[in-house]
Amino acid sequence: MRVAAPILATILTVVVGSIFFASLGHDPLATLYAFFVEPLSSMNGLSEWLLKASPLILIACGLAVGFRANVWNIGAEGQFTMGAIAASGVGLFWPNPESVLLLPLMFVAGMGAGMAWAAIPAFLRARMNTNEILVTLMMTYIATLFLSYLVHGPWRDPAGFNYPQTALLPAAALLQSFDPAYRLNSSIFITVAAVILMWLFTDRSFLGYKMSVSGAAPLAARYAGFRESAAVWIGLLAGGAAAGIAGMAEAAGPLGQLSPQISPGYGFAAIIVAFIGRLNAFGIVLGGLLMSLLFLGGEGVQMTLGLPSAMTRIFQGFLLFFLLAADFFIFYRVRLVRPIRDAHALETAR
């Protein structure tokens, strides 16, 4: 039954979406086709689909580890940004730009930066009892401003006609595409590995089980001697590592350089992916593919029908709304009861 809610939510989102398109004066069927089918009808579309699904799935896997333990890291966007910054820093400034070590170093830098950015809220929550939702979010704003500072200031490409962007990463710092015609690259293997790791951790390890108990029954977890601070650290660091790696893969993949806008909101969308996937590794894969399609479809209708890119966020919101609402009908038995008006009625009702 747990699978029913995401499916129901997807269907409802599509229905509401078509009503929405129709009310804007577009043919709903044609729009839905442009949104959900057209992006997947070419090789390039398929490549882009997987390319966008990859960071979403990767980040969602990391976040779900925390969410299972009620650790609310909603600042993956910031950890993603820091990962991309650190990885690009290594790629741009490593003394030997042809070194084969470049990509592995960037991977480590990206992961480390994401973890470091998540370690601050983890420390504050574990030691200072500070709400991690607000801290991770504030850290996201700070990361975005830091990126803006770098690309407008010290890291700006001197040969870049004053555009706020860094120089292109050297060839050895780029993840190679499978086929030069398409942008899909080997980073999807990282995502596949992350999904398997996440599944092993949550479903096959004692530590993962302890984390789930911390989330589902905090008092039982404390009674059993599971440390809450351990769950906080692991939850936040897993999300930070995943988001940092995703940032590295984005910088070394489709972007190839840094600019003020490096993410179309992967960090926030991944939160929804984690929920749609029921915090489960394989569910997240499906959720990520769906969310990626929403991004692609949003771009598609923007180009073909001139609809604004905000459509994607509206659809994301609807999807999560419907998922949450659908859960209600699955976890509870709904019964209509007439309110009892007075004491006499109460007596007769008995």
Partner: peptide
């Protein structure tokens, strides 16, 4: 938490639209 988060994303999308 989830419902509030969804509202934040939704509001930002609809207002931009």
């Amino acid at each position: 938490y989830a419902a509030g988060l969804a509202l934040a994303i939704f509001g930002s999308g609809v207002s931009a639209f």
